[in-house]
Design a protein around this nucleic acid. Structure first.
Lengths: 104, 104
DNA sequence: ACGACACATAAGCATACACTTATCTGATTC
DNA sequence: GAATCAGATAAGTGTATGCTTATGTGTCGT
């Protein structure tokens, strides 16, 4: 049940915000911390959780560690969602937007 | 941040299992409880959480309450996912499966 | 080799959460 | 209208989780 770890990781609003920030471009932990009132260890712990949920992956660059979105986690969510396609109504806006995005 | 409530709701494995069982067909709380070792109040509480996350909706039927999957929650997840389309690689299997499903 | 820096880990603490038992509400049946 | 049944709510409890401060690890520049 890896999806469970993913949902657990995204359940925390701080972690969700970190992920969204990372989605605007990969960066290191210190850069991520800028603009957020969060201690260095807290950031490290959050990144660790996101990493083991496959939502984020790291790449050592000398003294820095560059973090980036890991597509695997997103794909796992997409896979989970696909199981319930039978319940998607034809005209929910968000879904329509998704379909349009994917169509191109 | 309604998505946050959704992720929080799905973060619990018991709740996840309830949702999956409900996805096989709508039923009342007692029927849901069959086969699961879970107390009646626990089930009621879990359903309440799923309901406020828009993953499940209820329909009173006399003395019973019929629960069913609420497509709105699924659509919200789909909407959240769509924001990160840029990160989806072309060849992740789960994504391919999803696309194929949606294509038809 | 030493100091500085980026980040990870350890340990402790306060709150959140999932569970329990007990009780309440509301609808059906006799 | 009393008993019964489906389900909700209340109150209490143990554990998980997110935070903190303190310290450890590894890399760079001098």
């Amino acid at each position: 049940m890896i999806e469970n770890a993913i949902f657990k990781a995204l359940a925390d609003p701080t972690r969700c915000a970190i992920f969204e920030k990372l989605a605007t471009g990969s960066m290191n932990a210190s850069a991520l911390r800028e603009g957020m009132t969060i201690s260095q260890p807290a950031m490290s712990q959050h990144l660790s959780v996101l990493k083991s949920a496959k939502l984020v992956r790291e790449e050592r660059q000398g003294r820095f560690v560059n973090y980036e979105v890991d597509p695997e986690g997103l794909a796992l969510i997409a896979g989970w969602l696909a199981k319930y396609r039978a319940y998607w109504p034809a005209r929910i806006d968000a879904l329509k937007a998704l379909l349009k995005e994917m169509d191109q």
